[in-house]
Amino acid sequence: MIAGHRGAASLAPENTLAGFKKALQSGVKWIELDTQLSADNTPIIFHDETVDRCTNGNSRVADLSLEQLQALDAGSWFSKEFSGERILTLEQTLAFFMENDLNMNLEIKIHHAHQVQPLVEKVAKVLAKINFPNEKLIISSFSESALEHCHQVMPDIRLGYITKHNPLPMLEKLKSVNLYSVHLDYKILNQKMAKEIIQAGLKLVIWTLNDLQQASKFRAWGVDMIITDKPDVFAQA
Rank of each mutant, 00 (worst) to 15 (best):
residue 17 L to T: 12
residue 17 L to V: 06
residue 17 L to C: 02
residue 17 L to S: 04
residue 18 A to K: 12
residue 18 A to Q: 14
residue 18 A to I: 00
residue 18 A to T: 11
residue 19 G to M: 10
residue 19 G to I: 05
residue 20 F to Y: 14
residue 20 F to G: 01
residue 20 F to T: 00
residue 21 K to Y: 05
residue 21 K to S: 08
residue 22 K to F: 04
residue 22 K to C: 06
residue 22 K to G: 05
residue 23 A to G: 09
residue 23 A to D: 02
residue 23 A to T: 07
residue 23 A to N: 06
residue 24 L to W: 11
residue 25 Q to A: 08
residue 26 S to V: 04
residue 26 S to Q: 09
residue 27 G to W: 03
residue 27 G to N: 09
residue 28 V to Q: 04
residue 28 V to N: 09
residue 29 K to E: 15
residue 29 K to N: 14
residue 30 W to M: 06
residue 30 W to Y: 06
residue 30 W to L: 01
residue 30 W to K: 05
residue 30 W to G: 00
residue 31 I to H: 11
residue 32 E to C: 01
residue 32 E to N: 06
residue 32 E to A: 03
residue 32 E to M: 09
residue 33 L to Q: 15
residue 33 L to R: 15
residue 34 D to N: 13
residue 34 D to R: 09
residue 34 D to C: 03
residue 34 D to M: 01
residue 35 T to S: 00
residue 35 T to N: 03
residue 35 T to F: 05
residue 37 L to A: 05
residue 37 L to V: 13
residue 37 L to T: 13
residue 38 S to Q: 08
residue 39 A to N: 11
residue 39 A to S: 10
residue 40 D to L: 01
residue 40 D to H: 00
residue 41 N to M: 12
residue 41 N to V: 10
residue 42 T to Q: 15
residue 42 T to N: 08
residue 42 T to E: 15
residue 43 P to I: 11
residue 43 P to E: 07
residue 43 P to T: 13
residue 43 P to W: 06
residue 44 I to C: 11
residue 45 I to P: 12
residue 45 I to C: 09
residue 46 F to A: 02
residue 46 F to K: 05
residue 47 H to T: 14
residue 47 H to D: 15
residue 47 H to C: 14
residue 48 D to R: 06
residue 50 T to S: 14
residue 50 T to K: 00
residue 51 V to I: 13
residue 51 V to Y: 13
residue 52 D to W: 03
residue 52 D to T: 15
residue 53 R to N: 15
residue 54 C to K: 13
residue 54 C to R: 07
residue 56 N to V: 03
residue 57 G to W: 06
residue 58 N to G: 05
residue 58 N to S: 15
residue 59 S to E: 08
residue 59 S to F: 03
residue 59 S to D: 14
residue 60 R to I: 00
residue 61 V to R: 10
residue 61 V to M: 10
residue 61 V to P: 04
residue 61 V to Q: 06
residue 63 D to M: 00
residue 64 L to R: 10
residue 64 L to I: 08
residue 65 S to P: 10
residue 65 S to A: 07
residue 66 L to P: 02
residue 66 L to K: 12
residue 67 E to M: 12
residue 67 E to K: 13
residue 67 E to C: 10
residue 68 Q to W: 09
residue 68 Q to K: 13
residue 68 Q to E: 15
residue 68 Q to F: 06
residue 68 Q to G: 04
residue 69 L to F: 10
residue 70 Q to V: 00
residue 71 A to L: 09
residue 72 L to R: 03
residue 72 L to I: 07
residue 72 L to F: 05
residue 72 L to M: 01
residue 73 D to P: 08
residue 73 D to E: 07
residue 73 D to V: 01
residue 73 D to I: 04
residue 74 A to M: 04
residue 75 G to L: 02
residue 75 G to R: 04
residue 76 S to D: 07
residue 78 F to Y: 13
residue 78 F to T: 09
residue 78 F to S: 09
residue 79 S to C: 01
residue 79 S to A: 03
residue 80 K to W: 01
residue 80 K to H: 10
residue 81 E to Q: 08
residue 81 E to D: 12
residue 82 F to I: 10
residue 83 S to E: 14
residue 83 S to K: 12
residue 83 S to Q: 14
residue 83 S to C: 02
residue 84 G to W: 02
residue 85 E to Q: 12
residue 86 R to E: 04
residue 86 R to S: 09
residue 86 R to A: 05
residue 86 R to C: 04
residue 87 I to A: 08
residue 89 T to C: 03
residue 89 T to I: 02
residue 89 T to K: 00
residue 90 L to D: 03
residue 90 L to C: 07
